[in-house]
């Protein structure tokens, strides 16, 4: 176990030490204390490291993650795990806006609530939120899955392409071109697997599925006259 106290070591030094292991195969787990809302903690990791942050983090924690397993025992500020490629990021508290934005792969687990624009422009990977998400979540999402065990705010899935959205609670309103879809046994089975992998105790049978009506993102020949 390597412990780094951010009251003694600055973020650039911490991240450089973690980047020095990029391409490596991990080894000792890292424990980061004293985050106190600092930005860009554990950004750009590219090795199968285990990193645990004890406390609340600021903006952009665990951005661009590849292979690493990052856990924040606290809340996270805006832009958590943005553009994640692979690995796992877990927050035991809440996350602010734009969590998991533009992620291509991996698994983001937010045990509490996520704020607005969770999973905006999602391009792959999975986001599992134990609580609720704010407005405009999964805006323009293109691939991947967003699972919300609580409620979703207004404008869910606005201008969505092909991501799968699962919500157990209420939806404050579906965005443009986002519609409810059938929940088949196959969806339930895959959702149950994901919930299990995320360590979130929820009944896959209690979710409703939403996705793209596919009327927005293709050129529609009936609209040719408008151009």
């Amino acid at each position: 176990m390597i412990t780094v106290d951010l009251n003694r070591v600055d973020i650039r030094e911490l991240n450089q030490r973690l980047h020095d292991l990029n391409g490596d195969d991990g080894r000792a787990p890292w424990r980061i204390v004293g985050p106190d809302g600092r930005h860009s903690i554990a950004v750009g990791l590219n090795a199968p490291l285990t990193v645990v942050v004890e406390g609340h983090v600021g903006y952009y924690c665990a951005g661009m993650n590849q292979h690493a397993d990052v856990t924040v025992n606290g809340h996270a500020g805006p832009g958590l795990a943005e553009n994640m490629m692979s690995g796992t990021v877990r927050v035991t508290g809440n996350a602010s806006q734009g969590a998991g934005a533009s992620a291509h792969g991996g698994l983001l687990v937010i045990e509490g609530d996520a704020s607005s624009r969770c999973g905006i422009s999602l391009k792959g990977g999975d986001i599992v939120v134990g609580g609720s998400v704010g407005h405009m979540s999964a805006f323009m999402a293109q691939a991947g899955r967003l699972v919300v065990c609580g409620d979703a705010g207004a404008g869910l899935g606005d201008s969505i392409y092909e991501a799968e959205l699962y919500v157990a609670g209420s939806v404050g309103g579906l965005g443009a071109d986002c519609v409810e879809k059938d929940m088949t046994d196959d969806h339930r089975r895959r959702l149950a697997e994901l919930l299990c992998r995320a360590g979130i105790d929820a009944d896959a049978g209690s979710f409703r599925r939403y996705g793209s009506a596919r009327t927005l993102y293709n050129f529609h020949v009936d609209h040719a006259g408008a151009y």
Partner: peptide, 8 residues
């Protein structure tokens, strides 16, 4: 605006 101001 940010938790950094509250942390201490």
């Amino acid at each position: 605006s940010e938790y950094r101001s509250i942390a201490h």
